[in-house]
């Protein structure tokens, strides 16, 4: 279970000026084995919150408990141990450009496990087949399209079968068909593994078909937290406008 308690964060601009408050008193509980969708307009603090959960950023105030351990108070060494529980897909994929697709996906297993190379290779092939990229293992990321890079990122994020997986825009830049396939794949994976998943996405039409619960961020605050059905039927004007993509409204 992930418990976020009263988390706030402000960034100070490099050239001076007033701090930019990106998160303000965000509290949220994500139950174990839940597929949680985090939605909201751009620059509402969703990606920052994901980075805080995994300890890449420290909040100015508040705490984040992952299975009872406070990520915000952990030392770098403790964080390294805690991160073994995580898989993460970054917004820009963050594939290692100097490694082939196969090496990118195999990297966590090679570094973190004692699995023999033949087993690692077979796991990589299985992951590649899952994301419909069989035969791409020898290519470099620079030679892939945006959607292919995204799918390699998904394969890398899921290869260790981590109990907590964070996806930052898993379908950004993908065509509708591939996007739907990716969401279904992630949902299938989550059901099979029982992992706790937090997914940030702007593709609400597809996201809301796979989530168990949904939270909506707006200007650094969590303005909604409920089931997917509650989100779809919410009368809160900002949630209603965002979920239904209405042009008229407070956003």
């Amino acid at each position: 279970m992930i418990s976020i308690q009263s988390v706030s964060k402000a960034f100070r601009p490099a050239g001076g000026g007033p701090p930019n408050q990106v998160l303000e008193g965000v509290s949220l509980d994500v139950p174990a084995s839940c597929l949680y969708g985090l939605i909201g307009p751009g620059a509402s603090g969703k990606s920052v919150l994901l980075k805080m959960i995994v300890g890449l950023l420290k909040p100015d105030a508040g705490s984040i408990l992952v299975d009872g351990a406070d990520v915000t108070q952990a030392s770098e060494l403790d964080l390294q141990k805690m991160r073994l529980k995580f898989g993460m897909l970054f917004q820009n994929n963050a594939l290692f450009d100097h490694m082939t697709v196969g090496d990118n996906i195999a990297f966590p297993l090679r570094r973190l496990t004692d699995l023999p190379e033949d087993q690692i290779k077979s796991r990589v092939m299985e992951r590649l087949a899952h994301v419909a990229l069989t035969g791409f293992e020898g290519r470099l990321p620079a030679g892939l399209s945006g959607g292919q890079k995204k799918r390699v990122g998904v394969a890398r994020a899921t290869i260790t079968k981590a109990p907590i997986v964070l996806y930052d825009e898993p379908a950004a830049g993908l065509d509708p068909v591939t996007s739907q396939k990716i969401f279904e794949l992630l949902r299938e994976e989550q059901r099979a593994s029982g992992a706790t998943v937090i997914m940030v996405s702007s593709d609400l039409d597809r996201l809301l078909t796979v989530t168990d619960r949904v939270g909506m961020m707006y200007r650094g605050r969590l303005i909604f937290d409920g089931t997917t059905h509650e989100a779809k039927t919410s009368t809160e004007p900002r949630v209603r406008q965002f979920v239904h993509g209405l042009t008229e409204g407070p956003l």
Binding site: V54, Q80, R83, F90, A94, L95, F96
Partner: peptide, 22 residues
Amino acid sequence: GTMVVTEQLDALRVLAIDPISF
């Protein structure tokens, strides 16, 4: 620098790999 701005260093950290050692 490219690894930093494309979040590759963050990806290493999330994979529980110490960027200084690696």
